[in-house]
Design a protein around this nucleic acid. Structure first.
Length: 277
DNA sequence: AAAACAGGCAACCGCTGGCCC
DNA sequence: TGGGCCAGCGGTTGCCTGTTT
């Protein structure tokens, strides 16, 4: 971006007395209270009416990516990671579209995940992250590993004695005065839906059987899919989407499933030497 | 203990498309 | 029909924090 443009834009903001940069607790409170009482509406109007010295865009972003009550924070579950890999292989960098199938996750968060984690893996392999080679590596090594993690988690989550120390609160990067809240609605959505089929639509999982194996989108717990199965509902196709398979059909609580698989190496580098260029 | 470095993520930017007049 | 306004999107930047030297 040109410096001149940046400077101009910054000056324009300054001239009209608009604030920029990190949001304060007071601003968050003003915006949240306003929207909770009046709804979202037009963002420039929201900014003005709420008494914020921000432009509408900034308010919209802050609300959608941070303040909205149903936002999920913390590490992406293996299920979510798999879904991102799968949907990205279909749609590319259509972050907002991908985000539609990860309840509570924002396009920004998914985009950041892709750029910081996925592309990092690709760099380590010296492969283009959008190349067929990379997809092969993902399909062969990353996906099985995520599935393994999912099954491990499901086992762990079935055994309360094993997860006594699991915090419900994901790491928080905001300051200690944050108004961030975590809505644990698992009590309102106990248990899982019964899953009874699988589909073969997955790019990464081509060997799955042909009987559709759908997830009921209404069984989302804590804003995520609490399930060993992985899927969602694709509105424009009017179909449920499935990309996983598991024989484990047990109760789980996603809020307890924050095992940090995203920090693991996605694959054993010794295993995938053949993909390196 | 402090400086340098790297990674993660919140926030900003410009562009685009839809809507309204 | 075209111009203005606005929301939404994807790309980019820069700050903060944790790690390494």
């Amino acid at each position: 971006m040109e410096d001149s443009m940046k400077t101009k834009s910054f000056k324009e903001s300054e001239e009209v007395g608009l604030r920029r940069g990190p949001w304060t607790l007071e601003e968050d409170t003003l915006l949240t209270n306003y929207i909770l009482h009046n709804g979202e509406g037009r963002w420039n109007l929201v900014a003005k009416s709420a008494g914020l010295k921000r432009n509408g865009k900034s308010c919209r972003l802050r609300w959608l990516n941070y303040l909205k009550p149903d936002i999920r924070r913390g590490n992406l579950t293996p299920q979510e990671q798999l879904l991102i890999l799968e949907l990205h292989s279909k749609w590319g960098n259509r972050w907002s579209k991908i985000a539609q199938y990860l309840p509570g996750r924002t396009d920004n968060e998914i985009k950041n995940y892709w750029r910081t984690r996925v592309q990092k893996q690709a760099r380590q392999l010296n492969i283009e992250s959008n190349s067929d080679k990379f997809f092969d590596a993902v399909r062969s090594f990353w996906v099985p590993r995520l599935i393994e993690k999912m099954e491990q988690n499901s086992f762990t989550n079935c055994c309360p004695q094993n997860n006594n120390n699991k915090s419900l609160l994901p790491p928080q990067s905001y300051d200690s005065t944050s108004t961030q809240t975590y809505t644990d609605i698992s009590s309102q959505n106990p248990g899982l839906s019964n899953i009874d089929g699988s589909s073969s639509s997955s790019i990464f999982m081509p060997d799955l059987t042909t009987n559709p194996h759908f997830i009921d989108p209404n069984t989302i717990i804590d804003g995520s899919m609490c399930n060993q199965e992985l899927g969602g509902y694709i509105p424009e196709m009017e179909e449920y989407y499935y990309m996983g398979n598991s024989d484990i059909g047990t109760e789980c609580h996603v809020a307890e499933a924050y095992e940090d698989v995203t920090q693991d190496p996605m694959w054993n580098m010794d295993d995938i030497w053949q993909f390196r260029e």
